[in-house]
């Protein structure tokens, strides 16, 4: 278990934005309330070129968060040592204020599926995930934050609730949590549970970062609502309301606006950051 005091998460309790290269100029010229940026680790593993240069430049102006999407922490198989080494290389030169990954898997054998796949919550998966988190934190020499998934289905085998599973991981590994409020709303809608009850049961004291983002609406075979975590639309009112519920208990925390697909112009994303700032400093 990691001594979290050694490597505190140093993101400011302010709005941040998921960085997209199209926003480089707008963001640097007129960041508005955006005080920090988050990048997907796997997009910054090239040897050089514009993307790395932009990230170096941004890190002079903004606090940074490295958000991994490809480590497959939730998988049963060993973590990919090469990939972990690439993450360490990135964290070593960028010295980000936070590193986070997902409670999900994406690799089977040698193949990588480029999606965040779900896992059952059992004693066995708990042991795997805890061991993987220990390995990540030991390798990177820092605390990591673990993000809750957006769920479209549930496993018959699960014996833990998601909030209990996350709380137990925090207890065993000393990791922090990234609470994606949009994912809570999506999962609750899709699985017919209460988002508010999830937040109330969630170990909020471990939260180092919050995410909000947009989703798409669909229906399943039986006509029930099925929300898809698209990150391609504005944040809906119900998610902002849920964020308020979280912040009322945690106090100000770093809040990230995610918009990864159908990326809008900078003023549109900036307006979402302004909305997040309002949530952080209610009148």
């Amino acid at each position: 278990m990691l001594d979290a005091r050694r490597t505190p998460n140093t993101l400011p309790n302010a709005p941040g934005v998921g960085f997209k290269p199209a926003h480089f100029q707008g963001l640097t010229d007129d960041p508005g309330p955006a005080h920090w940026i988050e990048v997907h680790a796997e997009n910054y593993m090239g040897d050089g070129g514009r993307q790395i240069a932009q990230l170096r430049a941004l890190s002079e102006q903004f606090a940074t968060s490295v958000h991994g999407v490809g480590l497959s922490i939730g998988g049963a198989q060993d973590l990919d040592a090469d990939h972990l080494a690439r993450l360490k290389h990135l964290c070593d030169w960028l010295k980000p204020d936070s590193f986070s990954e997902h409670l999900a898997w994406s690799t089977h054998g040698a193949e990588y599926m480029n999606d965040l796949l779900p896992l059952p919550y059992t004693d066995a998966t708990l042991a795997h995930v805890a061991a993987h988190i220990d390995q990540v934190q030991d390798t990177l020499g820092r605390q990591m934050l673990l993000e809750n998934p957006s769920s479209y289905l549930a496993f018959d085998d699960s014996t833990w609730s998601e909030t209990e599973f996350l709380a137990e991981l925090v207890r065993r590994t000393g990791c922090g949590l990234l609470l994606d409020v949009n994912n809570v709303f999506i999962s609750a809608t899709n699985l017919g549970t209460s988002a508010e009850a999830y937040i109330d049961a969630y170990p909020l004291e471990a939260v180092g970062e919050l995410h909000v983002g947009g989703h798409a609406e669909d229906i399943d075979d039986r006509g029930a609502p099925l929300l898809i975590d698209s990150h391609g639309a504005p944040v809906v009112g119900a998610v902002w309301t849920l964020l308020d519920r979280v912040l009322a208990r945690t106090g100000p925390r770093p809040v990230l606006v995610e918009w990864d697909n159908d990326v809008p112009d900078w003023p549109t994303l900036r307006a979402e950051a302004v909305r997040a700032a309002a949530a952080l400093a209610p009148a």
């Binding site: 999606d115 479209y152 549930a154 017919g192 075979d221 039986r222 898809i228």
Partner: peptide, 21 residues
Amino acid sequence: GLHDGTGAVAGKRFDVYRNNV
């Protein structure tokens, strides 16, 4: 072994992952 949260089989919900990939 997958269900939709209310006990019904997951059906189309699995396709979300297929489609995403």
